[in-house]
Amino acid sequence: MNPLLLDVPLQLETERLILRAPLQTGDGNIVNQAIRDSFHELKAWLPFAQELPTVEETEVNLRNAHINFLKRESFRFLIFDKDSNDFIGTTSLQGINWDIPKCEIGYWINTKFSGNGYMTEAVKELANFGLNNIKFRRIEIRCESTNLKSRAIPEKLGFVLEGTLRNDDLSADGSKLTDTCFYSIIK
């Protein structure tokens, strides 16, 4: 089946969260503020967070993410608290290979919401959706070996640590070689 014909909802829900595609004007403002609020933590792990983006740059990034969603190249969701409507973070099905079919899950959280299980809940929903609705046969989570908070998520969700690739990548700031942990779950 051609991936463009897949019926992928623009919103998913969990007990506490709403995950929706970045398609509303003004999403750039709220995401940019979360990047600013969490800049110190994000900078340690994510190449995109080495410099603070402008609101305009964030808005363009989100609009491109929506285009990629429609083209079925990746599926980025913004995460919101159901009760307060606070923006919590993002999670994505990305690096899609439709021939297998497989993908990777990426995520980041606004620091002020970490430690509440929100990202674990969101990633669990996205992994279940990917395996059961999109019918991915393999979903990976990759993270730097020293990023213990990020590693805790696949470990809590039953992903298998397949291995650690030594000197596999550069640190977010490009200053040193890092090891990458590979986790996966299969159908």
Rank of each mutant, 00 (worst) to 15 (best):
L10G: 14
P53K: 13
A49N: 10
N147W: 10
Q33E: 15
I96G: 07
F75D: 05
G106H: 03
T91H: 01
S74Q: 14
L126Q: 02
S145W: 05
C181N: 14
T164C: 15
Y183T: 04
D83W: 03
I30N: 07
I186K: 07
G28P: 13
E57C: 04
T90N: 05
Q11L: 12
I139G: 03
K176D: 00
N85L: 10
R72V: 11
S92V: 12
E144A: 08
F77Q: 02
S84H: 08
N64H: 13
V160P: 00
T178G: 00
E73G: 09
E73N: 09
D99Y: 11
Y107W: 07
D83Y: 08
A34P: 07
V8W: 06
E104N: 10
R16E: 14
E57F: 00
I185N: 06
L52F: 10
Q11N: 07
D173Y: 12
Q33V: 04
L93N: 05
K71Y: 01
S175I: 03
T111R: 11
E125L: 08
I88N: 01
S145C: 08
I186W: 00
L161D: 02
T90L: 11
I141V: 14
G106D: 06
G89W: 02
W45E: 06
W98R: 02
N64V: 06
F87E: 08
I134L: 15
D27I: 09
I96Y: 03
E121D: 12
F75V: 06
V160Q: 13
I35G: 03
I134Q: 04
L170Y: 13
I185D: 04
K43R: 15
A65I: 04
T146E: 09
Q11A: 14
F39C: 09
V8M: 07
L157K: 05
K176W: 00
E155F: 01
L78D: 01
I134C: 06
R72L: 12
F77R: 03
R63G: 08
V8Y: 05
T111A: 14
A44K: 14
H66A: 06
N147A: 12
L12V: 12
N128T: 13
K82H: 09
T180W: 04
Y183I: 07
I30H: 09
D37C: 06
L46Y: 15
I139A: 03
E13H: 07
T58L: 06
K149L: 15
A65E: 13
T91R: 01
K156L: 03
F87Y: 15
N64I: 08
N97M: 11
F113L: 03
N29Y: 14
T180D: 04
G158V: 12
S74K: 12
T90F: 00
A34Y: 01
T58V: 09
Q24D: 09
F182P: 00
A127R: 07
N97W: 09
D86C: 11
F182D: 00
Y118H: 07
R76S: 08
